[in-house]
């Protein structure tokens, strides 16, 4: 049987979801898997809700992840975790940054940012690992390191050697940001 693992990476345009998927794709390819990564460019990137699909296994056909198919959802923002939760496979896991970024309808006051999203998700029987990734990312050097920190958290679950990740990070980010990103990765990987 062809087992494919599906990872949905969601967030707000500009948060660095594309770099995270690039890193993940590179590691999985090195591990000998067939890999597909699907992303969107253009208008949706301007602060809109964005989703990147990463799928790997012996043979991957479709590059997209639809309802009930994701083994993991890695969310860079709390509201986006809720928005994409329907894509989670029963028994799958949501890893989410608890950071809140107000979408325009909330900014203008036309809507309210829903309270207690992580709790609501957990109480509806969804496995969720929600934590503040922003503060430790800033401590590591920049809010931009949230993406690598979340990858560190995902790495705990995927069972791919830590060294492989470190090697891939070194190859994926510009040299002057290597140290910051390695720190962010280690923080995500080690956090309780």
């Amino acid at each position: 049987m062809n087992e494919v693992v599906s990872i949905l990476i969601v967030g707000v345009g500009g948060q660095g979801t594309l770099l995270a998927s690039k890193l993940l794709g590179r590691i999985l390819l090195d591990e000998g898997y067939d890999v597909k990564v699907s992303e969107l460019h253009g208008m949706s990137q301007r602060g809109g809700s964005v989703a990147t699909y990463v799928k790997y296994g012996k043979k991957v056909y479709s590059p997209v992840i639809d309802e009930g198919e994701a083994d993991y959802i890695v969310s860079f923002e709390m509201l986006e975790a809720a928005r994409w939760a329907h894509c989670l496979k029963p028994g799958g896991l949501i890893i989410s940054n608890t950071q809140q970024i107000d979408p325009m309808p909330v900014t203008t006051g036309a809507a309210e940012y829903p309270a207690g999203l992580a709790e609501t998700l957990a109480s509806s029987g969804i496995r969720i690992d929600a934590f503040d990734a922003l503060t430790p990312a800033v401590e590591a050097g920049s809010a931009k390191a949230v993406n690598i920190l979340l990858m560190g958290r995902l790495a705990r679950y995927l069972g791919i050697g830590r060294e492989k990740w470190i090697e891939a990070i070194k190859l994926s980010v510009p040299p002057k940001f290597t140290e910051m990103n390695l720190k962010a990765f280690e923080t995500g990987f080690g956090m309780n």
Binding site: G47, E69, A82, H86
Partner: peptide, 21 residues
Amino acid sequence: SPSGAAFPGSDALPGRPPVMC
């Protein structure tokens, strides 16, 4: 097809349209 995890009130979540920077 598989059905996804149901998030209560997912229809009522505020949208996030793209915006001018």
